[in-house]
Design a protein around this nucleic acid. Structure first.
Lengths: 214, 214
DNA sequence: GGTTACCGAGCGGAACTCGATCATGGGCGA
DNA sequence: TCGCCCATGATCGAGTTCCGCTCGGTAACC
C-alpha cells in the first residue's frame, strides 16, 4: 500500500486536531474516527453527520470524538485533509515511478490519482465541499485549502524549474478543469463515467499544447 | 427587472417547499425568507445560519419558517433553486436579445450570465455547495440538480434542432469547464479574478472549435 | 506514578412541532 | 352592488426534542 502513516498529514499545529496522538492506540482511534466519518458522509452526506454517529460507528464515546476534534466541522475538514494528503502521496509515488515525468504528463497522472481516490476512498467526494467551511476560522490556512488548490501548488512545487507566472496560472487552470471534469464523471456514476474521464485527459492535453512555455 | 415571479421556480411537487403559497402576502413572505437567508449566508456562511436568524431578519416567527421549509437545509436548497432559476431566466433573455444566437455563442452568454449573478445576487456562491445535499433524499430530483447540470440541459433545450449525443456531451463538458472556472474566479476575489474569467471564455471557445458537429 | 486516553451524564442552545389565533377573499343572500 | 360569513390560508411562539460540546472522574500505557 502506498499510504503508511497519513496521520502525520494532520499536524498538531493545525487547529483541525485538538490533541496529537502519542500512543499507538490513539492514532488507531483517530484513523477509526475518520473512517467512520467517511462512511457516514458517503451514506447521508456531511450535513446530516452528527458527532454521536461518528462515535458510535467507531466504537467510541462522544467525549473521545471531542478529545481529537475541536468541533463537528473539524471532523469533516480533517477527513478532507487526510484524503488530499493520500492523493498527493499517490501522485508523488506515481511520478517517482515514471522517472522521465515532465510537468505535462504529471497532470495526466494527477487525473489518474484522482480517479483511484474516487474509486477506493470512501468520502472522497466530500472533499469538493471542503472549501465550504474555509470561510470563517482563519489562522491556520494551509490544511484547509480546496482539492484543486492543493493539487495545483503540489504540481507547481514539483516542477519549479522554469516557474513563471504564466506557467503557474496554466497549471492552475488545467487543474481546475480536470478536477471538475473528474468530479462530474463520478457525480452520477459511482464507477466514474468514462466519457468524462477520457475527455478530461483530452481537454487538459489540448489546453497545455496552447501554452507558450510548454 | 428580468425576474417577475421566480417563486414558480419552486413547485410544490418538490419537497423543497412544504406549502405552496396561495395568497399574495404568502409569496411575499417566501421571497422575504429567501432574501433573508441569502443575506445571512453571505455574511456568516450557510453552516452558521440558524432558522431563528432567518425568521428574525425576515420579520417572521420560527413557526412561519417551518410552514414553508421542511428543515433548515431546505432553506438553503430553495435559495439555490431560486438563484439558478434567475440565472436561467437571465440567460434566456440574453439569448432572446441577441437574435442570431447559435449554441456556440450561447455558451459565452452563459458565462456572462453567471458573472452577473455572482456580482449581483447575494448568496449565489452558496449554490456551488448545493450539490452537497443532493445525495440522499431522492424522489423529487429535478429541483435539486447542480448549477452546471441545469445550465447544461437548459442550453441543450434551447438548441434542440441538431441534437445529437455528441453535441449534448460537448455542451455538458463545456458547461462544466466554464462553471468551474467562473467559480474559481470568484473563490478568492469577490469581484471575480479577470484572468480566470477571460480564460474560461478562451478555453470554451477552443474546446468547441474541436467538436465535429460545430 | 505521571501522562495519555477514554468515558458518559449533563448543560445549553438550536431545530422543529402543534394547537391556538388572526387575515383573506370567494360566495351568497338581501 | 354591496357587505357579512366562514372555510381556508397564514402567522405565531411556547414548548419539546435532539444535538453539539464540556468536564470531572476512571482506566490504560510506559
Amino acid at each position: 500500500m502506498l499510504v503508511t502513516d497519513v496521520n502525520e498529514a494532520l499536524p498538531g499545529g493545525s487547529s483541525l486536531l485538538r490533541n496529537e496522538p502519542v500512543q499507538a492506540r490513539s492514532s488507531a482511534r483517530l484513523t477509526g474516527l475518520l473512517d467512520a466519518a467517511a462512511g457516514i458522509i458517503d451514506e447521508i452526506g456531511f450535513e446530516r453527520l452528527t458527532t454521536a454517529m461518528v462515535a458510535e460507528r467507531a466504537g467510541a464515546s462522544i467525549g473521545t470524538v471531542y478529545r481529537y476534534f475541536p468541533d463537528r466541522i473539524a471532523v469533516v475538514e480533517a477527513l478532507a485533509a487526510r484524503s488530499i494528503a493520500r492523493l498527493l502521496e499517490r501522485l508523488g509515488a506515481a511520478i517517482g515511478e515514471a522517472d522521465s515525468a515532465d510537468w505535462h504528463s504529471a497532470l495526466d497522472l494527477a487525473i489518474t490519482a484522482q480517479v483511484e481516490m474516487y474509486r477506493s476512498e470512501p468520502g472522497f467526494r466530500a472533499i469538493r465541499f471542503s472549501e465550504t467551511e474555509t470561510a470563517d476560522r482563519s489562522g491556520d490556512a494551509d490544511a484547509r485549502r480546496s482539492l484543486s488548490d492543493q493539487l495545483t501548488s503540489h504540481l507547481v512545487d514539483i516542477f519549479s524549474l522554469e516557474r513563471t507566472a504564466d506557467l503557474e496560472f496554466a497549471i492552475e487552470v488545467a487543474t481546475e478543469m480536470s478536477t471538475s471534469l473528474v468530479a462530474r464523471a463520478f457525480l452520477h456514476d459511482p464507477q466514474g463515467d468514462s466519457r468524462f474521464l477520457d475527455e478530461s485527459r483530452v481537454v487538459v492535453a489540448a489546453y497545455l499544447k496552447r501554452i507558450p512555455s510548454a
